[in-house]
Design a protein around this nucleic acid. Structure first.
Lengths: 353, 353
DNA sequence: ATGAAAGCGCTAACAT
DNA sequence: ATGTTAGCGCTTTCAT
């Protein structure tokens, strides 16, 4: 071997810095973390020496000693979906910016989630805080976390005593209904998400409630015949739309609870030669990037902002700041494109021309 | 307070188990981790006691003592994009299944990535392994990781001495070109990703190389006039398509390097009243879920599988298994839908009818 | 303002 | 097969 095989020196530990700076390890620890009771001159010297020695504290050792992990975990139902990955991206940006390690785990069921929140997973020894995305936490779980001093925030759901960010889902449903009603539609269908899924079961319920209420305000009723489950998937929604169109008295307008489901509905319309916005109106929720492409009218929500807000509230809680117990309501906005149009003259038939 | 306020006992530590089982902490440690040299009867007793005491080892303490973290980190350019979130989802499933904590971080530039790989971030004290997604690692970085004993695997790029999974990007470009050529197209445009982006700069280059080569094989040349940058975004690709169509001699077929870019191209076609697959043919790469919705012909890749494979190889490396140095080639597959059609008779004009 | 020393809860040599 | 003990590298009382 030649000169290039410089045996790189063992990584500096706090003791090395202490020795080189002529202080105790305690002082190094204080100085480097900016704690009070360190003379300015001492602190300066310690910092200089630490830089020279390229010293960086071992995160694991400081976790063990201090009991905090400088780590956050986010728990989502599935990582590979537009909504969840966007929320996660928003949270990740905030956490990494703040110097927190960012763990993520996806859970396919409430049981899986329970395992993570359970005592035996020792989440309190892995993270300082947890953000739950569209996952309901029981009061008992929230209490247990609090007792173990792990901070909690949620998006899409609320948990006892934890900050949360949600959209006004009742309002979303109502806005969809009003938009369609104002266009003259009287028979309006609903493609819902599975209300029976224990994960994420609240959102569909709330949106449907607002939807039904707004219809009632217009002296309409939500006929159970025209509400079908689209399973929050393209395929499911396509089938759902087919079911709707096969009804003896099909709706002239449909509210899909997500843009992705609206795409499925759009496919079914296309397959039947029905023109969206003309033969059948359609509105979604999200304003997925792709909605512009197909001209889908929708109710936009700021998804990444929701993840970021939840992360910010979590970090604030970790700093010991108080939060207001009422959830942050993330705004939504109607985006009218091409799939919503006036109801056809009732005398005309909806059948394929 | 009443009887409900049971002061829950302090969490059991290894010492408590040792005491209760009448063995030393070392034996408890061995027994619980299934190490050899523990009598079956002893092991059984230790397990029973541990269960009774609800003992779970503190992950932080064992990390410090053992020097391994049971944690993996994945580094991606942006988390909120279909491709990357799908890769991450695939990797996450594998890692969590294997009991590894799963860190993720997104880096906006090579510099940011370098900071993470840099000595001073102490990644070796945060994770046992790292998977780099579409991020090139220098030989020096790969060497440094190896020296610090952190395992490495990559997807979309190759790193010296690390397992990787890629698609045959040259083949992808060639397949796109051949598909279009066989339909009779002679003037074929290319919507590329930014080849100047230091992150992810290889893929576009390779696909273009294969594309150009296949054109040459058909006695065609790739006219620089019909290759434009779509920036891997819908908007960018829409502009790119506009540019292409405004050329004096516009292409009759276009290869977009991603489905998302193809969507942008589709929008521009629609805006000009041009019919995809009839007036202009279009093919993408990915087989994004929405491609079915718009009937986009594309070259499908199995993205989640790539993330999973990279994670599996990483975990195998952590187990000390050898890997073969040649990258795993993830298969692709042509999916013909509606946006590819025969070239119009050259005597016809391409102008809006 | 600084230092000494006792942990934090485990793993891994080494000894028996 | 089991036990003893010295770390792992920090943070944090408690003195001074």
């Amino acid at each position: 071997m030649t000169a290039t095989s410089t045996r790189r020196p063992r990584r500096a530990r706090i003791e090395d810095v202490a020795l080189a700076a002529n202080v105790s390890v305690a002082t190094v620890s204080r100085a480097l973390r900016g704690l009070p009771n360190v003379a300015a001159s001492t602190s300066e010297r310690v910092h200089r020496v630490a830089l020279e020695l390229d010293y960086q504290p071992d995160p694991v050792a400081s976790r063990l000693a201090a009991g905090r992990t400088k780590t956050v975990i986010v728990v989502v139902p599935h990582l590979a979906s537009w909504y969840f990955s966007t929320v996660v991206a928003g949270a990740e940006a905030v956490c990494n910016e703040a110097g927190y390690d960012f763990l993520v785990t996806s859970v396919g069921s409430l049981d899986e989630c329970a395992r993570i929140l359970d005592d035996s997973y020792r989440i309190e020894r892995r993270t300082d805080g947890i953000v739950l995305v569209n996952i309901p936490a029981t009061d008992e779980q929230a209490r247990s976390l609090r007792e173990r001093r792990v901070a909690l925030s949620t998006v899409g759901t609320r948990a006892a005593g934890a900050p949360s960010v949600v959209v006004d889902d009742v309002g979303v449903g109502a806005l969809a209904a009003r938009t369609l009603v104002e266009l003259g539609h009287r028979r309006i269908g609903l493609i819902s998400g599975r209300g029976d899924d224990p994960l994420n079961f609240e959102v569909p319920k709330l949106r449907e409630r607002g939807f039904a209420a707004a219809l009632r305000d217009a002296d309409l009723v939500l006929d159970r015949d025209v509400v079908v489950d689209g399973n929050f998937s393209i395929e499911g929604a396509q089938e759902a739309m087919a079911t709707l169109l096969d009804r003896p008295n099909p709706p002239t307008a449909v509210f899909a609870m997500s843009d992705e489901m609206a795409y499925g509905a759009l496919m079914e319309l296309g397959a039947r030669g029905l023109r969206p916005g003309i033969d059948v109106s359609l509105i979604g929720v999200d304003d997925h990037e792709f909605s512009r492409v197909v001209g889908l009218s929708t109710i936009r929500q700021r998804v990444a902002a929701q993840g970021a807000a939840a992360a910010r509230m979590l970090l604030a809680a970790l700093r010991g700041e108080e939060f207001e117990s009422s959830p942050v309501i993330s705004p939504v906005e109607l985006v009218v494109r091409d799939t919503t149009g006036p109801a056809a003259d009732p005398s005309e038939s909806l059948r394929r021309t």
